[in-house]
Design a protein around this nucleic acid. Structure first.
Lengths: 101, 101
DNA sequence: CAGGATCCCTACGGATACTG
DNA sequence: CAGTATCCGTAGGGATCCTG
């Protein structure tokens, strides 16, 4: 009788600022915290929060290297890739909406 | 290099409280304002706002009858039905995520 | 460099009361 | 009945400063 609770949660996270962009940007390869921030124009506060959420949902992987200065790289998990595919599907759906008038 | 602007907008609207529920509830047939409010447990303020947004995006149709007391019925447009299908797809995707571990 | 802490402003949404 | 108007608390997110 409605979206499942899990689906609603995913939907909400994906709609937050920068979430879909992070997944999209990580389509291939991994990237560092600061690189993502620069490309996506997100404040470190928001970026950290978003990455934490996406990590908690199992969509991105976090790998920290014990170096100075510190380096942390983020990449998509298989689950994250599945969700990214879904986002791409959304793009196609929205395109077809133009035709459905 | 990311979700289209339109897709992001759709995503955001769908994530707001009650949006997907309204679409889902209108899967078949139409319903009145107060019925939707009762079923979805939304305050009139939020329900009105949500319906206005969904109407503006062309997902729901609004038909007002010149009666006393007033009666207004909402139903899904073809576009709305397409979006509803997409939401159902989301449910399936989230299910498959359980397997992708 | 990768964040956490703080301050602050805006958006979202419930409760209540009111009107055509 | 179908909303709108108002009040108000909570969440989201930018800017800035700080630290391991």
């Amino acid at each position: 009788m409605g979206l499942s609770k899990g689906a609603r949660k995913v939907l909400k996270v994906l709609a937050r600022r920068g979430a879909s962009e992070v997944l999209w940007a990580r389509g291939r390869g991994s990237a560092r915290f600061s690189d993502l921030g620069a490309v996506l124009r997100l404040s470190p506060r928001t970026l950290a929060e978003r990455l934490r959420e996406l990590h908690l949902m199992g969509f991105v992987d976090r790998r920290a290297y014990a170096e100075v200065p510190p380096r942390v790289e983020y990449s998509l998990t298989p689950r994250g890739k599945r969700v990214l595919e879904f986002l791409m599907e959304l793009d196609r759906v929205v395109e077809t909406l133009e035709e459905v008038r």
